[in-house]
Amino acid sequence: MNPSALTSPSLLTVDGLVGVVFLIMVLITVVGGLIACNSERLVRSIAGLVVCFIGVAGLYFFLNSPFVAMMQILIYVGAVAVTISFAIMLAAPEEKKKIGPTSILAGPLGFITAALITGGFVVLALKTEWAIHNKLNDGSMKSIGLQLLTDYSMVFELVSIVLLIAILGALVIAREGRKN
């Protein structure tokens, strides 16, 4: 890619418009995340989470991987968010978010941690020499499948172990306080 792409292009060119679309997607993601964190009712939080997922799917689509974008919507919006809201509605449909007893330090400490993490990411993003790849492959299902089962099979297996641990953890939590 030519170096001129690294400077911010004018708004009226194709690159500029693409940038605007990118910013819209980022905005959707951030707004969704804020709704998810800050709303009073749990179901609204879920809706915010869905908005956030859709924004992330848009970012994937923007990054030339429609397959990952569609999987993001199919799995996270269609399955995960529905399952979460299902669980919430079955358990406590009207309950407001409970805030447990917190110490005075919880707020500032949380803020400092968040600021450190954000600052770290910003520094990393600005300092890193980004290698601009051309497209690795065409992003089709076939090439993704081949890559997953050859070059990245270790990562693939590790992810499935993470999922297994998540399932076991859920079982352990659900088991607690139950006799027999």
Binding site: V43, A47, V50, P66, F67, M70, M71, I73, L74, V77, G78, A79, A81, V82, S85, F86, M89, S140, M141
Partner: peptide, 22 residues
């Protein structure tokens, strides 16, 4: 036309249940 057309249809179809829940 998308090379993941089948997925796209099912992805958006799966969003329908969200609206019913809400």
């Amino acid at each position: 036309n998308m090379n993941v057309g089948v997925l796209m249809i099912f992805a958006f179809a799966s969003m329908g249940s969200m609206s019913l829940l809400i």
